[in-house]
Every structure is written in C-alpha cells, then in structure tokens.
C-alpha cells in the first residue's frame, strides 16, 4: 500500500527541551492512527509539525493529497456565526458550494446553531465547528488533535460514524487521544515517548527499525 503521509526524522526543540527526536511516521490511505503519550510528550507539537503550522528543526514531511488539520483549541472568530464561518472557509478552500458543510453540520448536530455567534456556543459545540472547518474541503489526510473534547455521548458516537465513513472512502486519519478504551478503533496505536513514536498492538505501519517492542513509526 502506498503511504499518503510520510514524516522522516522530525526534530523539534523548545530551547534546550527536546520534544521530537527523529520522529518517523508513515500513514496509508484509509488508515486510522492514534497518537498517545503522557501530557507534555509532544503530541500536539508532532501534529503541528505534520500539518506544517510549526517549523521543525530538521526532518521532512511528504504529503500526497489535501490536508485537513483540526487544532486542539478551537480557532474561531467569536463575532461570526456558524454559517459565516462556513462561508468564510468555503471561500478559503475555494469551494463552489457548501454541500459538504451542510452535510457535516447535520451529522454532528450543528445545523441548529447556524445563526449563532461562535462566542455564544458551548465548548462542545465550538469543538464541533472546529472539526467541521477542518473537514469542509473533504481532505485526503486528516490530523485531529483531541477532536472530541466536550462532545456529548451521542455526538461522540456520531463522530466515530463519520470517521468510519472517511476511512471507507480511503481518507487517512491521525488522531491524538487520551482515551485508552478506544484503542480497538484504531489500526495503529503510536506511543510518543522521548520524542519518538513506538508502535503498539498492530503491525500495519511501515517501520524503519523493526523490533518487537521498539517499532518506530
């Protein structure tokens, strides 16, 4: 299978604090990868480096398609309504219509807030909008940084239905999570320790340094 996203030798330090120390990752089409790790392990830094929003000290990222990135904190404009956010980003993505956005709003229960300002939304609803904005252009690769923070149970289940559909259509997804009980949902569980990714529980990811307990992604 051909990898759609490949990261090799990513290094990133904040001053003397090394966060990424030669991190490698390869993700295929239709693959769902979970990145786990302790607080402060560098998971969000890794996702930002993969997205390109953070300049790394060394390493390369190769992407063969379009990318959607959902940051951990909802980056919204409080004075704009949900509908205005969609129109603004549709213009950014150069979409001819809002069909995909309408579908996503329906699926995540966001449509009833169409005319509500983002500043008046609850934390969970802001997160839904944050997610919809990253999915609006139907990207080939999705990078999601704890995307369901604040979701109610029903929305959480709808989210996983949505992820299932995306995977079925060949979309690759890299997701940061803290929820250990979810691990069966993923093709790959990648533990970020000391700036490197260690494979857990599956063998579907290409590795540079094969080994029983030290499969780096």
């Amino acid at each position: 299978m051909t990898a759609i996203l490949v990261a090799e030798g990513l290094h990133k330090s904040y001053g003397r604090h090394r966060v990424l120390s030669g991190t490698d990752l390869s993700v295929d089409r239709g693959q769902l990868v979970a990145v786990v790790g302790e607080n402060g392990a560098g998971k969000s830094t890794l996702l930002k480096a993969l997205a390109g929003t953070l300049k790394t000290d060394a390493g390369t990222v190769r992407l063969s398609g379009t990318l959607g990135y959902c940051p951990q904190e909802a980056v919204l404009s409080d004075n704009l309504t949900v509908g205005q956010h969609l129109r603004y980003f549709a213009a950014a993505y150069r979409l001819a219509d809002l069909g995909r956005g309408e579908e996503l709003m329906q699926r995540l229960g966001l449509a009833k807030f169409r005319d509500t300002s983002a500043g008046a939304l609850s934390g969970g609803t802001r997160q839904k909008l944050n997610l919809v904005l990253s999915l609006l252009h139907d990207p080939d690769v999705l990078l999601l940084d704890e995307p369901y923070q604040g979701f109610d149970w029903e929305t959480y289940l709808r989210f996983w239905d949505l992820v299932g559909d995306l995977r079925a259509r060949g979309k690759a997804i890299v997701l940061i999570t803290h929820l250990v009980f979810e691990q069966d949902r993923f093709d790959v569980l990648a533990d970020l320790v000391d700036g490197r990714l260690h494979l857990r529980g599956t063998t579907t990811v290409a590795t540079n340094t094969p080994g029983a307990d030290d499969d780096r992604l």
Binding site: L10, A49, L50, A51, G52, T53, K55, T56, D57, A58, G59, T60, V61, R62, L63, S64, G65, T66, L67, G68, Y69, F89, A92, Y93, S134, L136, H137, P139
Partner: peptide
Amino acid sequence: RTRRHEPHRGNVSGPVG
C-alpha cells in the same frame, strides 16, 4: 504565513486546511 507548497526540509508540500 504558511509553509504550503514548500517542499523544503521540515515542511509540508501539498494543499492544506
């Protein structure tokens, strides 16, 4: 500014969002 379409070291190449 973003680092889109810049196939340099440490950067992503390809449309993003």
